[in-house]
Design a protein around this nucleic acid. Structure first.
Length: 676
DNA sequence: GTTAGGG
DNA sequence: CCCTAAC
């Protein structure tokens, strides 16, 4: 009999998680039909609950979980011992491990007369979706609970694997709390996280620590925390126990590990082992601790949506959380090397003191990130994230879809850039920009960059003695006075006489125009400047500036200016003359008149050229299919690129210049002149 | 300030 | 093109 109860208990617990899920979906749940009934076969029990799907009242569906009792393996043994009917043979699952998942969910329709009719595929799908969608939530919820409510631990001690533990606990540990008391106690426990648990004492879930999705086949029936809310029967004892992994020796930990995961581990790190075990034992997915309480076959809702609530800071370490998430994500049996890595990652995160939790959504994200992350987040990345964060308080959740990449560091641990919060509540990120020596803050977005050397400013300053005035203007412009209308001379190539003397100032004056900012308002300056030097190399065009929505929602200016044939040629010439890699040189000499191409641009372009030249070495073939998108690069040029590449490959950078100068200089020059 | 690379 | 990390 006792055993029976155990099963019931488990059933309910696992079932409750489903319920909580549904609830989250704001589906109406009708628990009146909740019932626990022995199946025809002794080896299984089934429990059902009807839920009213949004639209159809009449159309009640219920999720049925059937718990297959007889299994062999760790669980089995225990069960048997407990004295319940041992159906060792009954279990279909061959391997011990698989046995661990005795719960099966079935969707059925409840007929008017109470009969249960197998659900149609469609119905199944429907519900599955619901559950599916909630997975993440579940997990989150689970996290909280894990820490908080925990309860059933099962055999984490080296000796008792799984189920056994639960049994033992049932009887021994904190024992038997019944009915009312239990509930009352729950109330307290849940909301307030239990401090002690987090660290050393980890709650073990009853069975093996794998999680699986609700509807997919076998699911682990026992959930750790859920135990808390389970007491459909008054006399249900509470499963509660804390296992102090800390006290275990490494060897013991190993054993435990093995018992938990079914494999050995060579890891010696105690911490790691503990985490792993805790994780494994903590069956996250199907725990629905706080939300419901079963009582006398009725489901009593316990707290309101408190998935996030229980976090009150105590639960500041997310080791457990992280781990849980991990475990959930993996297929039951697969926690292996892959997992281990992540595990480590999460471990790191742990150490971060400044973490805050917002309901675990973060954790989830972080999780995902952790999985891939290889490279440390770039500063920009960090900034973006932080911005997101800043605007996040609007209540909008981080869209997981956005999936901020693999940033491992906790979102919370980011370094915040200087920022001011404007009245509208939006955070404005600014950076300190020094213009002409005076530091001013300009909106981060309109950051001046690219081809606008300081000297430009200085030179401008020269034109306008009133330095301060200028600065002011600059600032103003920076602040975003945008006058979009601009004379653009669309980036045409600049065909201008190159007498240095004639244009010797030009680069300076012209620069401002091209600068990425132009759109934002350098205009005034420019115009003034241009008055003096009307000739202009003509690259004032910034028309191509396009604002691209960034992931974070900010807009980033991105201007694109296609490389003209002429530019390409200049580049090639430059490379041939000065050598690839001497981009600044090339920029200075060959692109003196084209201020909008930076050395980096040259470098990038060259890289692309190389790629192109080699990629389509057989020029004719590969490209005809779709080559019109971007300006086709004349084969001749590609050829040259190739040659140059070859040359450079042979000749070390330092020699290249001289060598090239001698070799290619002339021809190059000629070519260029021809084009120009 | 440049260069090399990844994104 | 944009950003960084390294030089």
């Amino acid at each position: 009999m006792k055993k029976l109860k155990v099963f019931e208990n488990k059933l309910e617990r696992s079932f409750s998680s489903q319920i909580s899920l549904l609830k989250k979906k704001s589906l109406k749940l009708s628990f009146s039909h909740f019932k626990l009934s022995p199946n025809s076969s002794q080896s299984s029990l089934s429990i059902s609950c009807t839920i009213a799907l949004p639209g159809a009242e009449s159309n009640q569906q219920s999720l049925i979980q059937s718990y297959v009792v007889g299994v062999e393996g760790n669980d089995e043994a225990k069960l048997d011992e407990s004295g319940v009917d041992k159906t060792s043979s009954a279990s279909p699952s061959p391997s011990p491990r698989q046995i661990a998942d005795p719960v099966v969910y079935k969707l059925v329709r409840v007929q008017g007369d109470g009969r249960l009719v197998p659900a149609t595929d469609e119905e199944v799908m429907e519900v599955e979706d619901l559950l599916e969608g909630d997975k993440s939530e579940i997990r989150i919820v689970a996290d909280d609970r894990q820490t908080v409510g925990c309860t059933s631990n099962d055999g984490s001690s080296s000796k008792n694997p799984l189920l056994d533990g639960s049994e033992g606990l049932l009887q021994s540990e904190n024992a038997v709390v019944d009915g009312e008391k239990l509930n009352a106690r729950l109330e307290e426990t849940v909301p307030s996280s239990t401090p002690g648990l987090i660290d050393g004492h980890i709650n073990q879930s009853g069975s093996v620590g794998e999680c699986s999705k609700p509807l997919d086949g076998p699911v682990e029936s026992v959930s750790s925390a859920s135990a808390v809310c389970t007491s459909s029967k008054p006399d249900f004892s509470k499963l509660k126990g804390e296992i102090c992994l800390d006290n275990l020796s490494i060897r013991e930990l190993h054993e435990t590990f093995k018992a938990t995961f079914g494999r050995d581990t060579t890891v010696k790190d105690k911490q790691w082992l503990k985490r792993r075990i805790a994780m494994g034992l903590t069956n996250s997915c199907d725990v629905s601790t706080s939300s419901f309480i079963f009582r006398n076959n009725k489901l009593v809702k316990k707290g309101e949506e408190e998935s996030c609530k229980s976090v009150d800071g105590t639960f500041a370490k997310d080791s457990v959380v992280g781990a849980v998430n991990d475990s959930c994500r993996d297929s039951p049996v697969s926690h292996n090397s892959e997992m281990e890595d992540r595990q480590i990652v999460s471990g790191k995160r742990l150490e971060n003191p400044s973490m805050e939790y917002d309901c675990g959504s973060d954790d989830l994200l972080t999780e995902q990130r952790a999985a891939k992350r290889v490279r440390k987040p770039t500063r920009r990345y960090i900034e973006e994230l932080s911005e997101v964060e800043s605007r996040e308080y609007s209540g909008r959740l981080l869209s997981s879809a956005k999936n901020y990449g693999q940033d491992q560091t906790s979102p919370k641990s980011r370094v915040m850039p200087v920022r001011n919060v404007s009245s509208d509540g939006r955070a404005v990120v600014t950076r300190l920009d020094s213009l002409g020596g005076s530091g001013v803050q300009v909106p981060y977005v309109s950051r001046v960059r690219r081809s606008r050397p300081r000297k430009n400013v200085m030179s401008l300053m020269k034109f306008h003695p009133s330095g301060t005035g200028m600065a002011a203007k600059l600032v103003k412009k920076a602040l975003g006075v945008r006058n979009s209308q601009r004379d653009n001379e669309s980036g045409g190539e600049v065909l201008i006489a190159r007498s240095a003397s004639q244009h010797f100032q030009q680069p300076l004056t012209a620069a401002p125009g091209k600068d990425a900012l132009s759109g934002t308002g350098m205009v005034e300056l420019e115009q003034k400047v241009e008055l003096k030097h009307t000739d202009s190399s003509g690259d004032t065009s910034d028309d191509n500036i396009v604002t691209v929505p960034t992931a974070k929602g900010g807009m980033r200016r991105k201007h694109h200016r296609a490389w003209t044939l002429g530019e390409v040629m200049k580049l090639v010439d430059g490379v041939s003359m000065y050598g690839a890699g001497r981009w600044s040189e090339i920029k200075r000499l060959a692109f003196a008149s084209i201020s909008y191409r930076t050395s980096v641009d040259l470098k990038d372009k060259w890289r692309n050229l190389l790629r192109a030249s080699f990629a389509q070495t057989p020029p004719e073939k590969g490209m005809n299919s779709r080559k019109h998108a971007s300006m086709p690069i004349p084969a001749s040029i590609l050829l040259r690129v190739r040659e140059l590449a070859k040359m450079h490959a042979q000749v070390p950078p330092n020699l290249s210049s001289s060598k090239l100068a001698s070799c290619g200089g002339r021809s190059v020059y000629e070519t260029r002149s021809g084009y120009l």
